[in-house]
Design a binder for these strands. Structure first.
Lengths: 202, 202
DNA sequence: GTCTATATTTGGATAGAC
DNA sequence: GTCTATCCAAATATAGAC
């Protein structure tokens, strides 16, 4: 029975094509805007007819969903690759810088993962679980450093995404809010850490 | 020459219809999502053919632009109606609460004014000037209370919109980030004010 | 798995009669 | 100022031949 390897080859080829389509979808989102993703143009770029995409994705939202999942996988990998120092203040600064790098490296990815802007798109439970895992990872790193009060995590996510959002929306390509990262990290640290070794402020 | 009053009547009627269309556009944005605004549906709601809208607005983006301008007018009026107390901490809290009320009262308005999500839409210079005026108003209220350092305003906008954004995106209808407003205001005040009369923290 | 063909809807926008 | 008539382009999606 030599059927199994054949199935494997077909399955592998299938998932390769899926990956190729996803790559093209990201590139298209970067060129035309996330919301302007179109199946016609996407198919053209991968050398297919638009209808053939339905062999790989059941709908346009299924493509968004796969993009969402892949984006959060990358986000998780990025977090896990960071070597956060034990010192809370240093770790906070490093975390904010890592977030900025990740977001600014791919704006549509940032938009898809951290904003809710595509009308009618909701991530599937499986994809959303990845987002939850990423948040739990951050919560664990904070807790290791004594930051575990109610609201501590939520305040940090608000501060972090707020900085990124202002940077992206109001000074794209510039550094107006990038220059506030360390300052913001210290402000947060001063407020959630036990009041020893306060920062120097501005 | 009784021509002038007739022109006035026509002009008034014209701007009345414009306002009516804008009202319907806001309502449609609330129902279908800001990005899903469609001229067909909009015309249906005001009892017109879609083509007739072009008598009042030269393009779809012109409608977005008028919405943008009206939204910032409302925002400015809201700010000017607030009676901010002299105490910086109290004023900061009140300002954040006012922003939250304004944003949560109309989510598409928040999206249009404070996020950049409509592909291809850029506010006209005239409309954008309103946004600048609103920011300058906030800067002036801060400066009156001794908050005028470089980056102080930018940090506040990041913190404020971050809180709103998290609330809207991740807990719509809830109060998870609303409960952090006063805490966040104090954190900001502690960092940006001369170090007298610190808050009690958490 | 990919194609042709097609359905179906919708989008924004223009020309010209009335 | 509003309409009819139309245009044109594009959208997502399905059926069925090969």
């Amino acid at each position: 029975m030599s059927e199994t390897p054949i199935i494997d080859r077909k399955a592998r080829r299938h998932s390769q094509t899926r990956a190729e389509i996803l790559d093209a979808a990201w590139a298209l989102a970067r060129d035309a805007g996330l919301a302007a993703l179109s199946l016609n143009e996407l198919a053209r770029r991968v050398g297919m007819r638009p209808q053939s995409l339905y062999t790989y994705f059941g709908s346009k939202n299924a493509i968004y969903d796969a993009m969402f999942a892949r984006g959060y996988q990358q986000y998780l990998e990025m977090l896990q690759a960071e070597d956060f120092p034990p010192d809370p203040r240093a770790a906070l600064r490093q975390g904010l810088w890592a977030l900025f790098r990740f977001c600014l490296a791919d704006l549509p990815r940032y938009q898809l993962l951290f904003q809710r802007t595509i009308p009618g798109f909701e991530p599937s439970p499986g994809s959303y679980a990845l987002a939850t895992r990423a948040l739990e990872f951050t919560a664990a790193r904070l807790a290791e450093r004594g930051i575990s009060g109610p609201g501590d995590l939520d305040l940090l996510t608000a501060l972090a995404t707020g900085l990124v959002d202002q940077q992206v929306s109001n000074d794209p390509g510039g550094d107006r809010w990038i220059g506030l990262i360390d300052w913001a990290a210290d402000m947060y640290a001063d407020h959630v850490l036990p009041s020893t070794a306060r920062g120097t402020g501005r």
